[in-house]
Amino acid sequence: MEKTIANKSVNINDEGYLTDFSQWDKEVGTEIAKEEDIEMTDKHWEVIDFLQDKHHKEEALSIRGIKKSGVINIKEFYSLFPGGPLKKSTKIAGIPKPKSCI
């Protein structure tokens, strides 16, 4: 379905994740973060960059990946994106959340 985020028309799925990364930009990310009650800082964006890079390389996103990222440790990750950090950070990054096969 379509939604207007940051004055831009984007396609999202039922759970509010962008379905087309090319529609993403920082303003869109900031707006999605606001909906999740997150005020973006430089540290947040660093994490978002890292996740997007992993996604483009088709590498799986996991807490282990965060631990080894060199960008942030896990406790900080939780404090930046409280309550389900991976599902929230991926939503802001405009990429799919980590999924199982069902």
């Binding site: 599902k87 980590p98 199982s100 096969c101 069902i102």
Partner: peptide, 11 residues
């Protein structure tokens, strides 16, 4: 660790 026992909308 995922956001549900089922993670895909249709399932």
């Amino acid at each position: 660790p995922l956001d549900g026992a089922f993670t895909k909308p249709k399932a």
